[in-house]
Write a protein that binds this DNA or RNA. Sequence first.
DNA 1: GCAAGGTC
Length: 697
Amino acid sequence: MKSIKFWVGAGGVAHHLLVCEKPSAAKKIAYALGGRGVGRIGRGLPFYRFQKGGDTVTVVSALGHLYIPVQQCKGWSFPVFNLVWKPASGRRAKLFLEEIARLAREADSFISACDYDTEGSLIAFMILRNACGGADAKARRMKFSSLTRDELLRAYESTSELDMPVINAGMARHEIDWIFGVNVSRAMMDAYSCNTGNFEVLSAGRVQSPTLEALCRRENEIDLHVPDPYWTAGAEIRFPSSGETAKAEYSRNPILNKAEGEALKIRCAGSPGKVRRVEEAELTVPAPHPFDLGELQGEAYRVFGLQPWRTQKIAEGLYLEGLISYPRTSSQQLPPSIGFRGILTELGANEAYKESVSSILNYADSGRGLWPRQGKKSDPAHPAIHPTGIKPNRLGADARKVYDLIVKRFISTFGPPALKSSKTIEVELEQGDVFTIKGEAVSDPGWMEHYVPYVKISSSRLPEACEGDAARAENVRVEETFTDPPPRFNQSSLIKFMESNGLGTKSTRAEIISTLYRRGYISGSSIRVTGLGRGVIEMLRKRFPDLVSIGLTRDLEERMAGIEEGREDYSAVLIRGAEAVRDAFGHMISEFEAVGAEIATLVGEIKDQKNKIGMCPSCKNGELKIVRSRKTGKRFVGCSNYGEGCSFSAPLPQKGTVKATGEVCRACGYPTVLVMGGWSKPWRVCLNTKCPSRVKG
DNA sequence: GCAAGGTC
């Protein structure tokens, strides 16, 4: 009989099986521990084997979660509370699990080497328990804060027990999310289809619903905002000694009533005065830290207008091509182990970065050393996003932009601080009113030179002036302005909101926003909540108040922490969650018809909205709609006043999805539509066949 | 046809 050894060393020869989270991590871990002795095994899968200290070590990889919770009994009923963990469907997942199971039979010691976080602990646990013959009972855990050689060697030599409380917390998180999300989504769809006989995909969830709720609240604030008027005054100040003029702001802006503004204007126009104070200051702007995923998404939105989900897809593509490091990271730090000099040198071979690289290396070699500026956030499994140094060939237009942004940001993090000088000149007029001239100029661009054109190196020339110099106010103006409502969210600011409220993770936020669009809950790049979105939230507020509240995530986090610390019991947490859903359902089922009817009206409105393109440019009061010709079956844009004599029509491409943009063409003022197909990115088309924007040239 | 979380 085979003896089972699960200790390391102690004279015996052991065969260790390391379970990693993903192929790239498996490779790094294998080579860190096995060095040159590493060989590939596993029929084309990313599995490795080597000898270490007389033991055999097999390294296998998962593909993220290979086990997922599914309902025990088949069917589309609700509410469902009984879940079981089953292997993920899909050919690849199956292949991985079969091969892991085969290799596990040869091993007698098992180590969880997934990312050191809750999901990682759970991924390894499920595999050890279900694909390795219950090896979870004797398995050990490697704990590492980065995938670097030293860290991994240390983690391998000092494994600890599996962290069962963390694993239980992870299971509870998955199951609660399923029980809340799937059941409530099904209830909404069922209520709708029972009421109308039609089908529509509707959804709710722990992350998407509070996100939608926040958008609704913002929408309300905007609706309720009453613009308050206020006035700001400014003047042009002339310095007779030099003949120079400069723009100045009144020192006591804003002015809260109109009469005061008028009086100021009369008092100051053409009035002489003196320079009261000149203040000059130097400001240091340190180099930026490298990107985590959220910041890359934010910056790509700011400089290119790329939507976050698209930036994420592009970055994942660049990663798969080997051009950049793993993008789903929350780290803003670069460890020296990635080889700063090596990467920079390789980037320097690219003509576009040659100059920046040599300047950075000179700066480093002049005694300062090669050190990137580090950000605050870290990640247990990955460094900040950085280029690998491999030279790209043939990237799409957007991929090239994102790549360039990542490279320039990376180079900039090694740069010297930039210096800005600011100058403030205060001018006091005869009557005692004070106007202030302010300006800022970059005196030494430092790192900014390497981040151009993504940073503007601003300079404004300021007049030379000394205390006591004579001055005169010219062109005194008082402008009426109104207080603004809070701004609408866009995808970038919404991701930031989600991040700061702990909603979703770095990998899921962009996708969850896309889901809200797909469901017809929100629309526009400056995000508006649709009638359907508001209706869903109102319904949830009434019947599932927990689900629309950010508090559910807070509560879940609290309970997970409780499980991890042994204060709470995994099954008690699940039972409590299920009970909350069951009670809410008791409430809802009695009002089933009402819910269905509410949703039915809202869905109807949305479908109508989707076909509306904008105002008719021909008769000026009809509404343009997508219609289908009865004769040819082809779709085109027609006017709602067709019956009343408006004959406007515009052709549409027959393939792909056509969506209203809600915006008019900049060149000719006609409404525009968005044409989307699998073959390219969304394409904005002006409905005017003779529009100058359509003429290529 | 549903969640949110990993990953290709």
